[in-house]
């Protein structure tokens, strides 16, 4: 069974399958078309959310300055951009961005995770002892916990559907009422811990995904990531704790 001795081929290099110089494609398609691209989407959306949460956390701390400050802040949120924008327009714009971010983030996370699991159909009998940090291996679970939390949280404090004492436009009262209930605190604190881990690994991960991390910057990136994670989760946790201990009431 000798092979064909005369296959037609120009002795010249044929472009390899992977080649093919197409015209400029839309960035979205390009980003979505590869694992690295999806990771980049995840990183950018993730960082957006980090930014939102950072601001959100700061805003929440106003609770320690009493009802007027806090509600005033909530009210101000809705007046951003006036008189150019109509009442709450900015807020809706921000919500839109956030929803898009969460959707993109979760979809890419889900798609990549599925792919990753498929890449090892047969698991090791002797389970690998992961060097990797706890946060890494719990990234996916942490994410899911956060997802569930956010849904519940929005229904609880924004929409109010889950909150028996909900008073529209009175977030201060809502929050304080909320945190009278011990198990609500538990849920919040649990979620915030998960969030802390998520950001801690997530930030560094994002830095690498976006190629921002370089040998000389590695330590700085790590530091910022941990600082953000601690800052954000502790900043948030301060609220339920504050209410429980009666510092804020």
């Amino acid at each position: 069974m000798a092979l064909d001795l005369r296959p037609a081929s120009t002795g010249q290099d044929r472009p390899s399958p992977a080649a093919g110089v197409a015209a400029a494609k839309p960035i979205v398609e390009i980003a979505w078309s590869s694992t690295i691209g999806k990771k980049a989407v995840m990183a950018v959306t993730g960082l957006l959310m980090v930014l939102f949460l950072f601001v959100h956390m700061l805003g929440n701390l106003k609770i320690f300055f009493g009802p007027n400050d806090f509600n005033g802040y909530a009210h101000w949120l809705r007046t951003i951009g006036e008189p150019v924008l109509h009442n709450s327009w900015y807020l809706w714009f921000q919500r839109f961005i956030l929803v898009v971010a969460v959707v993109l983030h979760v979809t890419s996370a889900a798609q990549l995770s599925r792919r990753d699991r498929a890449a090892r159909p047969i698991r090791y009998q002797h389970h690998p002892r992961w060097q990797a940090s706890f946060a890494t291996s719990t990234m996916r679970w942490g994410g899911i916990i956060i997802a569930l939390f956010v849904i519940w949280h929005v229904l609880d404090l924004t929409v109010g559907a889950l909150n028996p004492h909900f008073i529209a436009g009175q977030p201060y009262q809502n929050v304080v009422a909320d945190f009278q209930v011990w198990w609500i605190n538990v849920i919040y604190i649990a979620a915030l811990v998960a969030l802390g881990f998520h950001i801690n690994h997530g930030f560094r991960s994002a830095a690498r995904t976006l190629g921002i991390e370089r040998p000389d910057r590695a330590r700085a990136v790590r530091f910022v990531g941990t600082a953000l994670a601690l800052g954000i989760s502790l900043g948030f946790i301060a609220v339920p704790v504050g209410v429980m201990t009666g510092v804020a009431h």
Partner: peptide, 26 residues
Amino acid sequence: GGCTNTGECVVACPKGIPLESIANLN
């Protein structure tokens, strides 16, 4: 699979290829 920056590869690599190379690839 894709990379989730777990860093296990670097631990196993007999030639000490650094994680920075992955950042560079990205």
